[in-house]
């Protein structure tokens, strides 16, 4: 589905070149839920943006659905959820979800059906006519996810979508996101800096380290696909979390040396 091979990405800044990604290789299979975890500056967001063709790798090979990232973007193969909900204040929830559909030229009746469907999916029924400022942060982020789900992209790229929310809301949205993923069978790439979030959500966890941004460990989750929040107390969960923590630590030691 997504194939990353020996990708380097260097930003030219005023202080000289900064290596954001070095020698990154990764395979994402169809239906995977992959988390990128690491401290800030480890290039996890840059990697996601490169997949979305918002950044261009300096070296290496990157394909999305067998195409170059830019063709995949032009063919609207993915939906992208940003850290901030980024809803337009002058549009209602419904109007915001409609926005990409309008841009992509869906018919009026189809737009209506799709809005209905995704609004139910993210449990925002009854809030269609509300403006963003009338919603809580969690609800805004749900509307933003609905917007990314509304069109036919089978990949969902999410950049710390719940980073700005409190833990209680985040837990709830995490289990809802898992349900969504199972229902829609989408492939999800998810950037986070929370270990429990990454372990709870993912089928595959990619641990990254900064300076230069690189992958230190890739962990295939042994947790069952159907899981609820209680799984966080299980032995398996704790073991995977430990391995993630170790991966993060080893990356840190490399940096010191």
């Amino acid at each position: 589905m997504i194939s990353v091979k020996d990708v380097d990405l260097i930003f030219e800044t005023n202080d000289g070149p900064v290596q954001a990604l070095r020698n990154v290789s990764l395979e994402v299979e169809k239906g995977d839920f992959v988390s990128f975890i690491g401290p800030s500056g480890c290039g996890k967001t840059t990697l996601l943006r490169a997949i979305a063709a918002l950044e261009i790798p300096t070296k290496g090979n990157l394909t999305v659905n067998g195409k170059s990232p830019d063709s995949a973007r032009i063919d609207r193969e993915y939906g992208y959820v940003f850290q901030a909900a980024g809803l337009y204040p002058w549009r209602t929830v419904e109007g915001n979800i409609k926005l990409p559909l309008e841009i992509m030229g869906y018919s009026k009746t189809e737009i209506k059906e799709r809005i209905q469907k995704v609004i139910e999916l993210v449990e925002l029924k009854g809030f269609e006519k509300k403006f963003p400022w009338q919603l809580s942060g969690g609800m805004q982020q749900r509307a933003s996810i609905a917007r990314a789900l509304a069109f036919d992209a089978n990949i969902l790229l999410m950049d710390e979508p719940f980073g700005a929310l409190d833990e209680i809301v985040r837990d709830r949205l995490n289990s809802e996101l898992l349900d969504l993923w199972r229902q829609t069978k989408k492939t999800i790439c998810f950037v986070t800096h929370s270990i429990p979030e990454a372990v709870f959500l993912s089928t595959k966890i990619v641990v990254m380290s900064p300076r230069p941004g690189r992958i230190t460990d890739t962990i295939q989750s042994t947790l069952p696909l159907k899981r609820d929040l209680n799984i966080r107390d299980s032995q398996d969960f704790i073991k995977i979390a430990q391995r993630v923590r170790e991966g993060l630590k080893s990356g840190h030691q490399d940096e010191v040396l």
């Binding site: 918002l54 973007r73 063919d75 609207r76 940003f82 901030a84 980024g86 926005l99 841009i103 992509m104």
Partner: peptide, 12 residues
Amino acid sequence: QMQIDQMKTWSA
């Protein structure tokens, strides 16, 4: 920039 990137992801 985020809003403009968002438009770009929809290939507007």
